[in-house]
């Protein structure tokens, strides 16, 4: 019996080559109703306004950042992390529940080589487009419609990763 269990544990990752571990997972137990989804639209809209009004979507802001010629983006990212960290610690410490009364589920990230290789490639793309995925959507909305091509390319890039991920070092 014990041997069986061990075999299963070894075999499992091989059998399900791609266990679904989403990087931004939905852990809510009950499905979202269309009305329930509306709140994410509103959060997204506010988020998009902040992105655009703080000019985080500007190609020039990203250039300033990578040329160390402005503190702005470091201030944005640094203070965002600080507020996020404080909030997550408060949620954990006081076991704050979701509005549906569920326990908040947080995932640990597992180290993979992809975080170094993929992360480095992401930096290359970030400095070319002047945008990470969030700002791409805000750039399109704020009138730079040609960025739709960047978005379509990014979708194609994601697809290529999915197609060839098993051949990549990880």
């Amino acid at each position: 019996m014990a041997i069986n269990k061990e075999q299963l544990q070894i075999k499992e990752p091989v059998k399900t080559a791609q266990p679904f571990v989403c990087d931004a997972p939905n852990e809510q137990k009950y499905g979202d109703s269309p009305q329930g989804l509306l709140k994410y639209l509103i959060v997204g809209i506010v988020f998009g306004i902040v992105f655009t009004k703080a000019e985080i979507i500007s190609w020039f802001r990203i250039q300033e950042m990578f040329r160390l010629q402005s503190f702005f983006m470091y201030g944005v990212i640094g203070s965002a992390i600080l507020v996020g960290m404080l909030s997550v610690q408060l949620i954990k410490r006081f076991n704050i529940k979701t509005i549906q009364g569920e326990k908040v589920v947080l995932h640990n990230k597992e180290f993979k080589k992809g975080q170094i290789i993929g992360g480095f490639i992401f930096g290359l793309g970030w400095a070319i487009t002047g945008a990470c995925p969030g700002p791409i959507f805000a750039q399109i909305g704020s009138g730079f419609s040609v960025v739709i091509v960047t978005l379509l390319s990014a979708i194609a890039g994601t697809w290529l990763y999915g197609k060839f991920s098993h051949k990549l070092p990880n």
Binding site: G118, F122, L124, S153, G157, T158, G162
Partner: peptide, 18 residues
């Protein structure tokens, strides 16, 4: 547009996030 987008799309999944 094309190269920049491809790099971002490919790498964000490779790195597991942006």
């Amino acid at each position: 547009f094309v190269l920049g987008g491809l790099l971002i799309g490919f790498s964000t999944r490779y790195a597991g996030g942006c």
